[in-house]
């Protein structure tokens, strides 16, 4: 029972990070109906920058700050060079390819200049050996703090979206860009800031995952991007609570399969889940079916 408890606990913690990634995807989905296929590279880049700053003899928190900032800036740049010009030019497929291109470029850049070997990621939140005991189940302190951070960010985000003018502006842009522009909402700025926020979330998620795995390498992000997307799709694309639900569900599934079936199947279960979910209920558990207007 404690084994199952530990697996579920680890699944919830990892799942909360997936929810964070999903939230980053939702943000750009709201603002522009696009997803950044280079989001995985932003997660990787944030962690790599943090390691570089730390190895340069600086404080790890400074490194994390720098990493998250870089992720935010590049996310905004991605929108400006790989999404805005393309959606004006071609059909729906163009931006998938261009944002993927940005991601591949970053991945190639990191493996060229920092090596494709895994870099050790320093422990900045407790050590992997610290634990708290709850009802006889030993819970890793590191996982616990990651869960707290991820949950806090999701809650903060939901509050921000519901209670602030910027949150409402974002909802207006999501509903109808042209109408929002007519109402005097600075659509351009809202879109850019959404991408910045999406990049920041990706950066934080990247740092948290790197904390769990203990290493980071150039190819670190792409699977995470898919995991985040699976979380978003399970919950329903664009739904914050759905993303949290989906992320935690995916995390628990992954850990249970890894614990009881085989760790080899841990990753594969997410990809299988993605295909099943899209085939059976593409609008997600909490989403509403989009109506196709002719």
């Amino acid at each position: 029972m404690t084994f199952a408890g530990q697996l579920i606990f680890a699944g919830v913690c990892v799942g909360a990070v997936y929810a964070l990634i999903a939230l980053g995807l939702n943000l750009t989905f709201w603002a522009t109906r696009t997803l950044n296929f280079g989001q995985g590279s932003l997660m990787m880049l944030c962690a790599v920058v943090a390691v570089m700053v730390f190895d340069g003899g600086f404080n790890i928190y400074l490194g994390l700050l720098a990493g998250v900032a870089v992720a935010g800036v590049i996310a905004a740049a991605t929108e400006a060079i790989a999404i805005r010009p393309i959606t004006r030019l071609t059909g729906s497929m163009g931006w998938v390819v261009t944002t993927l291109g940005v991601g591949i470029f970053l991945q190639g850049f990191v493996s060229k200049f920092f090596g494709s070997q895994a870099l050790a990621f320093p422990s900045f939140l407790f050590s992997p050996r610290d634990y708290v005991s709850v009802l006889g189940v030993r819970l890793s302190a590191q996982y616990l703090i990651i869960l707290v951070i991820a949950l806090a960010l999701v809650l903060l985000f939901e509050l921000f979206q519901r209670r602030t003018a910027w949150g409402r502006a974002l909802q207006a842009v999501a509903a109808d860009q042209d109408l929002a522009a007519v109402m005097g909402i600075p659509v351009r700025l809202v879109v850019t800031l959404s991408f910045v926020a999406s990049g920041l979330l990706a950066g934080v998620a990247g740092a948290l995952v790197a904390q769990i795995t203990g290493t980071v390498d150039a190819a670190f992000g792409f699977n995470l991007l898919i995991f985040g997307f699976v979380a978003a799709v399970i919950g329903g694309m664009g739904n914050t609570w759905g993303a949290l639900l989906g992320g935690i569900f995916l995390g628990i599934m992954e850990k249970l399969v890894g614990g009881y079936v085989s760790t080899a199947a841990e990753q594969a279960i997410a990809f299988a889940l993605l295909m099943i979910m899209l085939a059976v209920r593409p609008e997600g558990l909490l989403g509403e079916k989009e109506f196709v207007k002719v």
Binding site: I86, V97, T98, G101, I104, F105, Q107, G108, F109, K112
Partner: peptide, 13 residues
């Protein structure tokens, strides 16, 4: 891979 990335970024333009 940097070249592939760049190509995908700019090819449509």
């Amino acid at each position: 891979f940097m070249v592939y990335g760049l190509i995908l970024m700019v090819i449509f333009l």
